[in-house]
Nucleic acid binder design. Structure first.
Length: 437
RNA sequence: GUGGUCAUAGCUCAGUUGGCAGAGCAUCGGAUUGUGGUUCCGAGUGUCGUGGGUUCGAGCCCCACUCUCCACCCCA
């Protein structure tokens, strides 16, 4: 017998983990619903032609390919597992555009797969919770997503910092320092600023072929300090006269203004080092980091002006963010922030002494369930010790013991497992006691 | 994809220069036939990740593979 196993980077979820995960998903779902977003799902697998070339060279390598069956088994795979929820969503919009009312507000909570090498907070199968608004340029959409971030993390009790940037500002910087074609190199290098330090960033920029005087011009921008307003003023000055960059500053200013109008209390920070790898972002970029756990970003997203263009529907602007459920799980676990009620645990267990008692208990259980009480009946009249141990190990707070005496008087012996107290009660009394506990 | 690291009972882990495969927890039974969580007694459990090699003899040494975790790349 070889030991059973699961593929690298995948996980089983037991009852406790599922209760926790469902708590996260339902919290997120409830917030999304409050903003009028509607849920969709797309297939786990997409055609390779849909997936290829959408995530850059690196992304193509990380796609899981599905081998063809039958006669085509040896030909190139025509299907692959989805890598994220955004590209399948873009395909969905193009395919169903005639059925949709724009601006279209959708959310989607499904697993995605990446053939990455696993490590902490990084899996080959993980869930994303995407929420997007498609078909409007309005920055109110950005504001709403920021409000959603605020609501979700407030509900979960996680302290976070929202990092904000704008791709147009980054493009403007690249133009101003005289290296407009190097925007990707510049952003991926300065993204690492707080990780590897200024000196190494400059070294990397040089290695990526950036001219020395361009690097020199970049220094004041990398060194920006102060409040969000001060930083924004400073960058506006640097970018004055540059059309793209100024547009980005205007967008950022407007978003901050809208946040004030909604009395947003979220902790946010203008972060020019925030780049985000995906190259389809064109405007605002978001990233959320947990303040009390070091795990990378737990939510990320941004605006993309022409995502559906690659599928033949140009000029449709959208903005969206993705909550990383698996990382949020790790954060909540590390900070021990799950509410006790999340388990939906059994409220009362029936323990019986014989077959007649078992049947009696089943009748009672049915009535309690009608009252929306979570009930278990121990399925056989085993030794009382065994039935009690079962209740104890599952932390069931109440045990209703049924023997001959109880049946005769139409009662059960109700034991409170935390205090050890017990008393003989009728069904009405039982229902009242359970609702009190 | 590059570099490192780990794997022994259901779980967490000991295991000496290479010489009989171990402990705690959990499980099951009993002390206690109508009462759990505390206590005491007893019991079972292993292709030592997989395959090969060295050796009289390998959990231990060598090689390959798989898996875990970590760093890089990239990312949620």
């Amino acid at each position: 017998m070889t030991k059973p196993n699961i593929p690298k980077g995948t996980r089983d979820f037991g009852p406790l983990e599922m209760a926790r995960r469902n708590y996260i998903f339902s919290t997120i779902r409830n917030v999304f619903a409050r903003y009028g977003f509607q849920q969709i799902e797309t297939p786990s697998m997409e055609l390779m032609s849909t997936l290829m070339g959408k995530y850059g060279e690196e992304g193509d390598k990380l796609l899981f390919r599905i081998q063809n069956s039958g006669e085509k088994a040896n030909e190139a795979p025509e299907k692959g597992l989805r890598y994220d929820l955004t590209v399948p969503f873009a395909r969905y919009i193009v395919q169903h555009r005639d059925e949709l009312q724009f601006p279209f507000r959708r959310f989607q909570i499904q697993p995605v797969w990446r053939a990455d090498r696993p490590q902490k907070g990084r899996y080959r199968e993980f869930y994303q919770c995407d929420v997007d608004v498609i078909g409007t340029d309005s920055l109110v959409s950005e504001l709403e997503l920021i409000q959603i971030v605020e609501d979700v993390y407030q509900a979960l009790g996680i302290r976070v910092c929202l990092h904000l940037n704008n791709r147009k500002i980054l493009a403007g910087i690249a133009e101003v320092i005289g290296a407009p074609d190097k925007i990707i190199d510049i952003t991926t290098a300065i993204d690492k600023l707080d990780k590897i330090g200024l000196e190494n960033v400059n070294k990397e920029l040089s290695e990526r072929g950036l001219a020395d005087d361009s690097i020199a011009k970049l220094q004041p921008i990398l060194a920006l300090q102060g409040s969000n307003e001060e930083k924004l003023d400073a960058i506006a000055e640097v970018l004055a006269g540059n059309e793209t960059g100024t547009k980005g500053v205007e967008e950022m200013t407007q978003i901050i203004d809208l946040m004030k109008c909604q009395l947003s209390t979220i902790n946010y920070q203008l972060d020019l080092t925030l780049a985000r790898g995906l190259n389809y972002y064109t405007g605002t970029i978001f990233e959320v980091k947990a303040l009390d756990v070091q795990i990378g970003s737990i939510t990320g997203g941004g605006r993309y002006d022409n995502l559906t263009g690659i599928f033949g529907l140009p000029n449709v602007s959208g903005v969206g963010i993705s909550f990383g459920a698996d990382r949020i799980y790790d954060v909540l676990t590390e900070l021990n922030l799950y509410p006790a009620s999340m388990m939906n645990a059994t409220q009362v267990l029936f323990a019986t002494f014989g077959d007649a008692e078992l049947r009696y208990a089943l009748k009672w259980a049915k009535q309690l369930r009608k009252e929306n009480i979570r009930v278990e009946v121990y399925p056989e009249p085993a030794k009382m010790k065994k039935q009690m141990s079962y209740a104890d190990s599952k932390a069931i707070p109440l045990v209703a013991i049924v023997g001959g005496n109880e049946m005769e008087s139409d009662t059960v012996m109700l034991k409170n497992m935390t205090t050890g107290e017990q008393s003989q009660v009728t069904i009405e009394q039982l229902i009242n006691k359970i609702k009190k506990v």
